[in-house]
Amino acid sequence: MADFLFVPYSSHGHINPLLPVLRELTTSGDRASVVVAPNFADAVAATGAHVLRLPTSSHVIVPERFDPVDEVRRLTKTFADRKAIYELLRVELRAGSPDLVVYDPMVPKVFQMASARGVPTVLFSTTYAQNEHVIASTVQRHLGAAVGDLLRKPWARRLHPWAVETARDHRLVLINTLPELQPAAHSFGPRFRFVGPLTTARAERGDLPWSEIERRRVLLVSPGTVFTRGPAFFRTIVEAFADADQLVVIATGPTAPQALGPLPPNVIARRSIPQTALLEHADVFLTHAGMNSTMEALAAGVPMILVPRILDQQVNARRVAELGAGIRVDAKQLQPELLRLIAHKLTTDPAVRASVDALRARVTAQNGPVVAAGALREAADASCRFDHAPR
């Protein structure tokens, strides 16, 4: 039996992939303690893990339009959240030494704190990994091959904090994706484990007309829980499919559904939706291309309209489009007629269906939580051969 200490970043996109791994560990007799904000404590406790509760709730929301005041507030809250994590971790490490500390790249100081106590670490990445090759290929798209070649030098790791994390002396780096979605996958060594999707079916189905959902074609719309979209974005989608024969289910997030105005009978808008349950009945998924949503869609075999906002989402969207499982479109170019054309192509093109089915087969063949838990046990077993005494 191994003793794990998990230090995630308390946000939906970072906690949700961790839950099935925790459940897999605890049901097999391992001990898992998790430093987590109160608003995620119940979900963590339900896995059988021991909750180390932070003093305040935490979840990041980034508005669609940049506001310097909001940005200062967000950064201040993020700094305070990290400080609370580090303070609680310091207490736990003084009380005893776990076999392994598993942490998120969003809380980088964990590495130094664990290392100072002689405790080995595992990095748990909820999106693709970064190194100098990934940075270079990304920059090369915008600034040309010469700059890309320059950034392939090892010092380029310092340009991206996640690249710094993946370069450190971890026992293991777990990555919540398939190698097909990892940029420059060939440049990552054996300690990088692409464990596949870390998703789990959830029992809740929400206040939705399920009998109608189960008998009709469904377009699912969910732009994520962090980087929000405003009313105009959703109104464009409503206009595009107001007269269509499919049911449109929209997750508006922080945007109030009332802000969309009167909705046609075939459109349902809620702040939140049971996404994995709905994907089982969806024909098309309009998504921000976050890694969790992307993997959930591939697991369900649903083609995607990809409308990313930030860099990692843009990289995911580009790769999914290259693999033929979706079509990428810029939000500024989002027009009703274009949306209708894309949705029609995704549901009628045999090549799209073949690509989606092939990726679904890859996803379902790999039991991500089992693979991740097994890799963690191997790393913990190796760590037991080392002295954990403080340095």
Rank of each mutant, 00 (worst) to 15 (best):
A2R: 04
P8A: 00
S10R: 04
H14E: 09
P17T: 01
E24R: 07
L25P: 07
T26P: 07
G29Y: 08
V34S: 10
A41W: 08
T47P: 06
H50Y: 13
P55T: 08
S57T: 06
S57D: 14
S58Y: 09
S58Q: 13
V60S: 12
I61G: 10
I61L: 13
V62L: 13
E64T: 12
F66H: 13
V69Q: 04
V69D: 10
D70K: 13
V72C: 08
F79N: 10
D81P: 00
D81G: 03
R82H: 15
I85F: 13
L89A: 09
V91Q: 14
V91E: 15
V91D: 15
D104S: 15
M113N: 04
S115D: 05
S115N: 06
S115I: 04
R117A: 08
V119I: 15
V122N: 06
S125G: 11
T127M: 15
Y128E: 11
Q130I: 14
E132W: 01
A136R: 03
T138H: 08
T138I: 13
H142C: 01
H142Q: 12
L143G: 00
G148A: 03
K153A: 13
W155P: 01
A156S: 05
W162L: 13
V164C: 02
L174V: 07
N176Y: 08
N176R: 02
N176H: 15
T177W: 07
Q182N: 10
A184F: 02
A185Q: 10
P197W: 02
A203L: 05
R205D: 05
L208E: 04
E214Y: 07
R215P: 05
V218S: 11
T225K: 03
T225M: 07
E239S: 12
A242Q: 08
A242P: 07
A244M: 06
Q246M: 10
V249T: 06
V249P: 01
I250Y: 05
I250R: 02
T255F: 04
A259C: 04
P262A: 14
V267P: 02
L279S: 00
F285H: 01
H288P: 02
E296H: 01
P303G: 01
I305R: 00
V315R: 05
R319E: 00
L323C: 00
G324T: 01
I327K: 05
V329R: 01
K332F: 10
L338Q: 07
L338E: 09
L339C: 03
I342H: 04
A343S: 15
L346C: 03
V356C: 04
V371F: 09
V371E: 08
A373K: 09
G374E: 07
L376M: 11
A389N: 07
